[in-house]
């Protein structure tokens, strides 16, 4: 279980407990957090769950696959700390993680 804080582009915060092994995309969809769409169902194939990872947490969220990097390269607002929330899975190590959302998911 990890307590995840999702912050919408407009600043609205949503604190959600996400079970171990569940992706942060599913954690948002399952708890009604707006601003994350997850159109491809968690395959790193659409980039509609784009989030920015709080820089202090970046090393703990693991490495990206080529597919995830390719999709992020085509997304609006790509930053160094951009990730797809469907590729990060909750665990005790991520308890307290803060993710921010871009202006739009594309």
């Amino acid at each position: 279980m990890a307590k995840i804080t999702y912050i919408e582009f407009n600043g609205a915060e949503h604190v959600v407990n996400v079970s171990d092994g569940i992706s942060l995309m599913e954690g948002a969809l399952g708890n009604g957090v707006p601003g994350i769409d997850g159109d491809c169902g968690g395959n790193a194939a659409c980039a509609t769950c784009h989030v920015y990872i709080d820089p202090a947490w970046v090393p703990k969220t693991g490495t990206m696959t080529d597919m995830e990097a390719d999709m992020l390269d085509l997304a609006d607002g790509r930053q160094d700390n951009s990730r797809l929330a469907c590729q990060i899975h909750a665990s005790a190590a991520l308890d307290g993680l803060v993710v921010r959302m871009p202006e739009t998911q594309h």
Partner: peptide, 9 residues
């Protein structure tokens, strides 16, 4: 929203 009409990848 989880449909494939827009393609993936």
């Amino acid at each position: 929203r989880q449909h494939m009409s827009f393609g993936f990848g």
